[in-house]
Design a protein around this nucleic acid. Structure first.
Length: 281
DNA sequence: GTGGCCCTGTGA
DNA sequence: TCACAGGGCCAC
């Protein structure tokens, strides 16, 4: 469930709790959660976390390993992944995949807190890599534009270059990165476009308008600290508030907030999709 | 382009 | 009991 605004919120709330901390006592409770970098794991013991950041839906930890070399831990939370910093008396549970202790300095004898990676559905993963290995990761290499770091015109040009149903295009991470099911549906509603409308039938200016709505909605969601449907929480355990502003997502069969007609439910791009047949053409 | 798969919890 | 939640990947 975490999409761009949720991962951005997690990164922002996680950063003050991990920045400059030293890592020890790493516990990998689920071997498959660490997709790559098993060989690099010993270098994390005593490593220093430089900062947390986000690219697409990936939460990235920039680390300096115990030999002083840069290392990257990239987490994909998929649907139910969570990153938390807990007090030391919190124990790992059934769905805890990774824990590591955080020390305020290299010489401090006792840890101050513990970072948890929990994931009920176990689709989430962590990849431990050298920075120079990032381009060799196909998913990373193919990631499209960051939607908030380009103009609507630039985003629209990307959208125009990809044929097919517009919702499929929005969910394609190689076109624009970071949009998931929620923000795809919400953006299309604001832009007045049906999710199954073919992108090649949409006029250029309408795609620019859609791109503007995508930026607007992602920014509003970041300002609201994301959307909490059931699982999502930020790194401090707080729920987001943007779910209260949904126009369509999760509202199939309810009244359109604009025109009052009953919102339609469908399957587009293999995902549950809600839209208004009156407002979206 | 579409649908199955990974996986668990939830709600009808 | 079973459909559904769905990101990304893979086979068809």
């Amino acid at each position: 469930m975490p999409e761009l605004p949720e991962v951005e919120t997690i990164s922002r709330t996680l950063n003050p709790q991990v920045q400059g901390r030293y890592v020890k006592n790493i516990h990998l409770l689920s071997a498959k959660t660490l997709e790559t970098g098993r060989d690099l794991l010993p270098l994390l013991e005593g490593a220093r976390i430089e900062k947390s950041r986000r690219r697409a839906k990936l939460l990235m930890l920039d680390v300096r390993d115990n030999t002083g070399q840069p290392l990257i831990a990239a987490f994909h939370l998929k649907m139910t992944g969570r990153l938390f910093v807990h007090p030391l008396d919190v124990e790992p549970h059934k769905h805890t995949k990774i824990t590591l202790d955080l020390y305020p300095s290299a010489s401090t004898p006792a840890p101050e807190s513990r970072l948890f990676f929990d994931d009920v559905r176990t689709f989430g993963y962590c990849r431990l890599m050298r920075p120079e290995q990032l381009p060799e990761w196909p998913f990373w290499a193919k990631l499209g534009f960051e939607p908030l770091e380009h103009t609507p015109e630039e985003l629209a040009a990307r959208l125009a270059a990809k044929k097919g149903r517009i919702k499929n295009v929005l969910l394609d991470q190689t076109v624009i990165a970071g949009i998931g099911n929620i923000y795809a549906d919400e953006s299309l509603f604001r832009a007045g476009l049906r999710p199954d409308r073919k992108s090649e039938t949409i006029p250029a200016e309408k795609l620019v308008s859609l791109a503007g709505h995508i930026q607007e909605i992602l920014q509003e969601a970041i300002d609201a600290c994301g959307s909490s449907i059931r699982d999502y929480r930020d790194a401090e355990g707080n729920a987001g508030a943007f779910q209260n502003k949904f126009n369509v997502y999760g509202r199939g069969g309810e009244a359109c907030k604009t025109c009052g007609s009953t919102l339609a439910s469908a399957r587009v791009a293999g995902r549950g999709t809600v839209y208004c047949e009156t407002c979206q053409k």
